[in-house]
Design a protein around this nucleic acid. Structure first.
Length: 557
RNA sequence: GGUCUGUUGGUGAAGUGGCUUAACACACCACCCUCUCAAGGUGGCAUUCACGGGUUCGAACCCCGUACAGACUACCA
């Protein structure tokens, strides 16, 4: 075995990369240190355009944004598209579109521009190769001609021997090929990858401090990992190290599926002579599988809510989703927000040591509750306007009705909004149509008492008498209620449920029963927001029409 | 098989050796308020922090072992 000397390595490097013009100093100068204030974090989100975006991606990008923003740093969007095989048409547009749609806005990167581009890894091949060329000269990388079959049989052997799987030490057969041998293989047009010639010793231990997970110990990395693939494009590992160095990332926030490759990344930073960023590995969003009972990562296929599109389609407000992401990002956010109801997410100081270490389970009920609270704090007009944006895209018919009935709808949406106990009955934009189906005649006629789930038939004469002869829509709520009590008493009903309960034989029922009849006839359901408010908005004429509608309904029964 | 990381009520979780008779929120249940619902109020819901050992005057918190779960172990990211 002959180990190449420096001159041979230089020859090899030129042989392998004849077209690389620049040396690494060129890039080091091209991408100088950023001029940011002390403590500013430079974060980056690096999606690969392989399909639809899911909640976990959104969460990761959200964290990047929040930490950069609060420290007056930079949040970079870098597209990690080095694997052409996995690329999906429109993948990139989809990602940028979804991020924008969810109001997660990078301040530098692909489509956002900046001084540290290109931000598409597929356009950075020359940069990666420049550094790899240098690594070959340094003796830290070499061409490996092993075929897929050879590697597979090594893996098989390692499985049988129960040793560590991979290409390292004894198994790295092309590690110390002589220059002549390499030339010969090259002449034979043998295909090759460039592998790291790892200087690590697995018997030694390294310690790494992760901003979220804390102290972690690993054996030193000793595998000859692929740096450049057969087609000359980099693997994730190489691209990560070079990009984050050149873009001056200060904090690598990424999913914790990467912690296992941390020793590799650390080693790459070392042999390349780069300062390394801080790492913050975030826990994946998990779910307890209802079938198996086990905890697993969320899955776009199995979990409806896992896909980013779901939130848009169903009408979850972006801000509410941000609130939810913030509560899973920092464990103390929820309580803070409860105590600081009028503050915004931006006012909260996120910190890595308040970030969950284990998997964070998705809690749909909690999201729902956050949404309800969100809606309850919005005025009727705000809810109207936001709903309009939603229906424009997802419910054209209803959208038209909303526009035609703006004033009226806002009034409905404002029912029981004032005071410190606003209604909490809407959790998403699509609920508006559902919850206020009685508001508009067009919808009500369609629905026509189908929602009524009881089997009572209400006294039409009593209701008609009340509406025609007693109802005064100019009153306020309290006087209205005392009047309907009087009406109840006049007709042999008790004025309160309590009174009725104590003396059932003397009454036909109580005010509540009359209200129930009114409610069902007017709204088609046994539950509704404040009845008098609804009647006021609807007006006497509409109410009378509904009584007639109810008559028809009864006759058909 | 190997490496790494986790394991606190129905759920999300707080907790970094004495302030913990385990916070808070969601869910659930009961009662109250009440014309229905939503909301609100009051109370209930882990005698115990996966299990077994150890260190300590003292442990959910530190150490060791076991079990279980998750991630990685690709020329994918």
């Amino acid at each position: 075995m002959v180990i190449m000397d420096i001159n041979e390595r230089k020859q090899l490097a030129d042989l392998l990369f004849p077209n690389i013009k620049h040396n690494r100093d060129y890039y080091e100068q091209k991408y100088p240190e950023r001029k940011l204030k002390d403590g500013a974090m430079v974060t980056r989100y690096g999606p690969s355009p392989t399909g639809s975006v899911h909640l976990g991606n959104l969460f990761s990008a959200f964290c990047d944004m929040v930490y950069a923003k609060q420290s007056d740093g930079k949040f970079i969007l870098r597209i990690e598209d080095t694997d052409q095989k996995r690329a999906v048409a429109d993948g990139i547009d989809n990602i940028t579109g979804v991020l924008k749609g969810f109001n997660i806005l990078p301040n530098e990167g692909y489509t956002y521009g900046g001084e540290y581009g290109p931000y598409l890894q597929s356009e950075r091949t020359e940069i990666y190769q420049t550094y790899v060329k240098d690594l070959i000269v340094q003796g830290y990388a070499y061409p490996c001609f092993m075929t897929e079959e050879e590697i597979a049989s090594i893996k098989e052997e390692q499985e049988i021997n129960k040793t560590k799987i991979g290409i390292y030490g004894y198994y790295a057969v092309d590690r110390d090929l002589s220059l002549e041998e390499v030339k010969e293989k090259l002449n034979n047009k043998e295909e090759y990858v460039i592998r790291l010639k790892s200087p690590g010793n697995a018997k030694k231990e390294i310690e790494i401090i992760d901003a979220i997970k804390g102290k972690m110990k690993f054996p030193e990395y000793d595998m000859d990992m692929v740096l450049l693939k057969k087609d000359g494009t980099p693997t994730y590992h190489l691209a990560h190290v070079i990009d984050d160095h050149l873009m001056h990332t200060t904090h690598v926030i990424r999913g914790d599926e990467w912690v296992s490759s941390l020793p590799l990344h650390i080693q790459l930073f070392e042999i390349l002579g780069f300062n390394r960023p801080q790492y913050a590995h975030i826990a994946p969003i998990t779910i307890k599988d209802s079938e198996t009972g086990t905890i697993r990562k969320i899955s776009k296929r199995k979990d409806l809510w896992a896909g980013a599109k779901y939130y848009e389609e169903v009408g979850i407000p972006i801000e509410a989703l941000h609130l939810y992401l913030a509560t899973i990002a920092n464990t103390n956010f929820e309580e803070w927000y409860l105590n600081n109801q009028n503050k915004k997410i931006e006012d909260f100081e996120f910190s890595f040591n308040k970030q969950a270490i284990g998997g964070t389970s998705f809690d749909e009920a909690k999201l729902n509750n956050i949404c309800k609270t969100y809606f309850s704090r919005k005025s009727g007009e705000e809810v109207y306007n936001e709903t309009l944006k939603y229906t424009e895209k997802f419910d054209k018919e209803y959208h038209k009705l909303l526009i035609e009935n703006k004033e009226k709808m806002i009034k409905f949406l404002n029912i029981e909004k004032d005071g410190d106990r606003p209604r909490k009955d809407i959790s998403k934009y699509s609920d508006v149509k559902e919850e206020f189906s009685y508001a508009l005649d067009e919808l009500f006629i369609q629905e026509n008492y189908q929602k009524y789930d009881g089997d009572k038939i209400y006294d039409i004469n009593l209701v008609t008498d009340y509406i025609e002869n007693y109802l005064n829509l100019d009153l306020n709520n309290e006087t209205w209620f005392s009047e309907i009590k009087e009406f109840a008493v006049k007709n042999g009903y008790a004025s309160s449920p309590k009174e009725y309960k104590n003396n059932k034989e003397s009454f036909k029922g109580h005010v509540g029963d009359i209200c129930e009849a009114l409610r069902v006839i007017i709204t088609g359901r046994t539950k509704s927001p404040d009845l008098f408010s609804i009647m006021k908005i609807l007006g006497k004429e509409t109410i009378i029409n509904r009584i007639n509608l109810y008559k028809k309904y009864i006759n058909n029964c």
